[in-house]
C-alpha cells in the first residue's frame, strides 16, 4: 500500500534547482532510503516532504490526501514526523520537555483549562510525562530525563530529536542523517533503533551517508544527484548501478562496485 507519493516535485532557489522533477512513492512499512553526494538535494527533499519548503512545482500525496502547500504542522497532524540534519532542538527546555512537545497534537487541553489549571490537566500531564519518559528510555536517553537540552552531547541530541518525532505517534518518520557525527558504537545503536522502528510498523525515510547502515536496513533506495533521480530500487540493484558508482566515485572508479562502508 502506498503511504506517500510525489509527482513532478521540484524546488528552485533563485535559479538553482535543488530538487528536480522527482516522482516516486513510498510503501507503508518500508525503510526507504535517500542517498546521494553532498548537495544532491536530500535535505531539500525532506523539507518538501514535511511542508518546511513549499514546492516550486509538483504535488505531494499522503494516503491519497493532497498535502501540497500545507504548513508543516498540518503534515505533522497527518502523521509525518522528522528529525533534522542541523539540529532543531529546543535548547531553552529540558530533554524531557523537548519530547513532551512532540505530544502536543495528542493533548486535548483548551486554553481556559490551561490558564485556570483544571484538575483534569494535571492527570493528562502526568500521563504525557510518563509516556515521554518511556520514549526516552526507548531511544536510549534514560540518563538524560531532567538534563537541560543545552547541556547534552551531540549524539544524545540526535536521539532526542528521534524521541520527539516518535512522541507525535507518527506513521511516517523522516530521519536526516541520524548517524552523522556519531562514533561507531552510537552508529550501531542508531542502526538498531531504525530496525526497531520499522518492526513496530512505522514507515521510515532515511537520509544517510553511511553506506553500511543504508545497505543494511533499507528496503528501497532512491539515489539523487544534482536534484535528479539517478537510480531507484533495492540495495542490490542500486549498488550495482554504474551511474551511482560514477556519481559517488567519479568515472574513473566506475569499474569497482560501491563497497559497503564507503562514501563520506
Amino acid at each position: 500500500m502506498t503511504l506517500l507519493r510525489v509527482e513532478q516535485l521540484s524546488k528552485e532557489f533563485g535559479g538553482v534547482r535543488a530538487v528536480a522533477d522527482l516522482q516516486f512513492s513510498i510503501a507503508a512499512g518500508q525503510v526507504f532510503s535517500i542517498i546521494g553526494p553532498n548537495g544532491a538535494g536530500k535535505t531539500t527533499l525532506l523539507n518538501l516532504l514535511t511542508g518546511v519548503y513549499v514546492p516550486s512545482t509538483g504535488r505531494i500525496w499522503f494516503e491519497e490526501r493532497n498535502l501540497t502547500g500545507r504548513a508543516p504542522y498540518e503534515y505533522a497532524a497527518c502523521g509525518i514526523a522528522r528529525t533534522f540534519q542541523n539540529l532543531q532542538v529546543f535548547f531553552n527546555m529540558s530533554a524531557l520537555e523537548n519530547v513532551m512537545v512532540g505530544r502536543y497534537l495528542h493533548e486535548r487541553c483548551g486554553l481556559p483549562a490551561a490558564m485556570l489549571r483544571f484538575p483534569s490537566l494535571g492527570r493528562a500531564e502526568r500521563e504525557t510525562r510518563s509516556e515521554c519518559e518511556k520514549l526516552m528510555h526507548f531511544v536510549g536517553l534514560g540518563a538524560y530525563l531532567e538534563t537541560a537540552a543545552d547541556a547534552m552531547p551531540y549524539g544524545a541530541l540526535k536521539r532526542l530529536e528521534i524521541a520527539r518525532a516518535l512522541a507525535t505517534r507518527p506513521r511516517l518518520v523522516l530521519l536526516d542523517e541520524p548517524a552523522a557525527g556519531l562514533n561507531p558504537t552510537e552508529t550501531l545503536e542508531v542502526d538498531a533503533l531504525i530496525s526497531k522502528l520499522a518492526k513496530s510498523g512505522i514507515t521510515v525515510v532515511l537520509v544517510e551517508h553511511n553506506m553500511r547502515l543504508v545497505m543494511g536496513v533499507s528496503d528501497h533506495i532512491l539515489v539523487l544527484d544534482y536534484g535528479r533521480q539517478l537510480a531507484e530500487g533495492s540495495a542490490e540493484v542500486v549498488r550495482r548501478d554504474p551511474r551511482v558508482i560514477e556519481a559517488y566515485l567519479g568515472a574513473a572508479a566506475s569499474a569497482e562496485p560501491v563497497s559497503a562502508g564507503g562514501a563520506p
Binding site: V52, P72, Y73, F91, N92, M93, Y104, L105, T168
Partner: peptide
Amino acid sequence: ALHGSEVGAEVAG
C-alpha cells in the same frame, strides 16, 4: 518550543 526552534515546533505539530 517555538521560541527554541520555530521549525522544530512546527514539525512537532
